[in-house]
């Protein structure tokens, strides 16, 4: 299915968010996720099924003021 990952179109098999993260190479990375603007906690990822056109945000620690 086609989804948007950090606003870039990507093709993933899924079907869960956890599967998609592994597929995208983020398994084990310190990241937080949101789907369609809503926070998706790490514990919810295995059961959270992605759908065509979903907007996935992957955020990581960064410098900040």
């Amino acid at each position: 299915m086609k989804i948007l990952v950090n606003n870039e179109a990507r093709e993933v098999a899924g079907p869960s968010l956890a599967d998609a993260l592994d597929e995208l190479g983020y398994g084990g990375a310190v990241i937080a996720t949101a789907v369609n603007g809503d926070f998706a906690p790490a514990r919810s990822r295995p059961a959270l099924m992605l759908r065509e056109g979903d907007r996935l945000e992957l955020l990581a620690p960064m410098r900040g003021g």
């Binding site: 950090n6 606003n7 995208l24 190479g25 983020y26 990375a29 310190v30 990241i31 937080a32 945000e57 992957l58 955020l59 990581a60 620690p61 960064m62 410098r63 900040g64 003021g65």
Partner: peptide
């Protein structure tokens, strides 16, 4: 600190 989109290759975060 802050949160920003993680790039696919650099993994700076």
């Amino acid at each position: 600190v802050s949160l920003r989109r993680e790039s696919g290759t650099e993994r700076a975060g």
